[in-house]
Amino acid sequence: MTPVLIVENLIKTYPAFRLGPVSFKVEAGSIMGFIGRNGAGKTTTLKSILNIAHPDSGSIRYFGQELPGNERAIKQRVGFAGGAVDYYPRKKIADMIAVTRSFYDNWDDEAYRKYMDIFSIDPQKSPRELSEGMKVKLNLVIALSHKAELLILDEPTSGLDPISREELLEIFTALKERGVAILFSTHITSDLDKCADHITYIKKGEIVASDTMESFITGHSIRGEGRNLEEIMLHYEKEDYREKFAE
């Protein structure tokens, strides 16, 4: 089966930061955990994948199609949710949806009502009246109502309370079981422990590893670099500040 997303040798250079080369694949019906500490390049990678930042080089293919030249058709099949982004915070959700639905060929009103009901979102409220967790759920409702086959989620669980995080992880797992692919960027390792099938680890703009969760953990465990995601992350990232202060 063709992967829903293939990123190959993506490079983006800023004056003070270089991203890449970044390469990974996301398979249908799976969750790819895109992990790295703050500032590692996760959001820049996602922005490049969504064509709202321009990579210097590299290839991005969705559903077997190159992104350049097929952006409109591809975005019909992709949903995005960011943890800290809310659109039109003072508009009524119903008004926002009335406009948004017109852009999607596959918009399903029945599915929209069903997911709004499942997530207990009142369309007469405005996004600013929603909690952070509910805002992520609203973006998920939009993505699911236009039958997105791939969800790109930028730190959707950051800043959420444990219950909301747990709820979202359950939702992601349920969606995966229904064949939806999820690219889930986060620095919260415990979230990925619970739901990810694959892991792509990024450090200072470079991909350290991209593998199945099992191989990723086993490989690092054998080398004594950690037995779970948190320990592996600490192995890669921890700096000894006691030594630094002593200098």
């Binding site: 058709a73 975005k75 659109y87 003072r90 508009k91 999607y104």
Partner: peptide, 12 residues
């Protein structure tokens, strides 16, 4: 209201 980002992510 993040109008630019919202618009840029639409299938347009």
């Amino acid at each position: 209201t993040n109008d630019i980002l919202y618009s840029a992510l639409l299938p347009i």
